[in-house]
Simulated scan of single mutants.
Amino acid sequence: MLSDKSRSDKVEMIKNLIRANNYKDCQKTYEQCINVGISVNLISLTRFTEKLELLDRADRSKRIEQLQQEKNQLKKALTYEQVKQRETAITFELGELKIKENRLMEELNELSKLLDSKQFN
């Protein structure tokens, strides 16, 4: 008989496989389960996948709603100075992201050129 811990570990592993496959292609998830040594019924796996997707969507919706409420409450509680400070911080972060994006684009261009010229060490 499986212990509760090993059973819950297997259920979590199945959930992770389902999520990794974006709740689609139950046949692929089934094969992955078999490959890691978890014996499952394909029909039950399909039903479980559908229910897990619904639960995850509901959880995501709750979290988004909660974040929106917190954001609205935070907006009401901020002073002018705090708003200006946050605005400056966001602007700075966006600038850093733009710089990083440009560096990555340059690196990608160099890699593309290298692939085109087929010059490898």
Rank of each mutant, 00 (worst) to 15 (best):
I43Q: 14
T29E: 10
N72R: 08
F120Q: 01
E12D: 12
R86Q: 13
N41S: 05
S8E: 15
I34V: 14
L114G: 00
L2K: 03
Q66D: 04
G95D: 10
Y30L: 04
E106M: 06
Q119Y: 02
K84Y: 06
K75Q: 08
K75F: 08
K5V: 15
L54Q: 11
K71Y: 14
N102L: 15
A77K: 06
T88H: 13
K10F: 09
R7W: 15
A58K: 12
S61Q: 15
L55F: 15
R63C: 03
I14N: 00
T88L: 07
I38A: 04
Y80G: 04
R19Q: 08
D4K: 06
M13S: 06
E87G: 09
E50I: 13
L55P: 01
Q85L: 09
T49R: 03
E12K: 09
E110S: 09
F120E: 00
K51E: 09
V11Y: 04
A89E: 12
R57H: 10
R57D: 14
Q66H: 13
N35Y: 12
L104H: 13
N16R: 12
K84A: 14
S117V: 00
D59P: 01
S112L: 08
G37A: 04
Q119L: 01
F92C: 07
L104I: 03
Q69H: 08
C26W: 06
N102C: 12
D59N: 15
E70K: 14
A77G: 02
A58H: 09
V40H: 02
G37D: 04
V83H: 03
L108Y: 11
R86C: 07
K24D: 08
S8I: 15
E65W: 05
R60C: 02
E107S: 11
L115Y: 01
S44A: 14
L54M: 14
M1A: 09
T49E: 02
L54E: 13
I90K: 10
E106F: 05
L55K: 12
S112Y: 05
Q68M: 12
N35M: 08
E93P: 02
R63K: 12
T29Y: 07
S112R: 14
E50N: 04
I34W: 03
Q82R: 02
K118D: 00
N109Q: 13
S6K: 06
E53Y: 07
S44M: 10
E81A: 13
K24T: 11
L54F: 09
L67Q: 15
Q119T: 03
V11C: 04
S112G: 01
K28H: 08
I64W: 01
L45H: 02
D56P: 03
Q119N: 09
L97K: 05
R57S: 14
D25K: 08
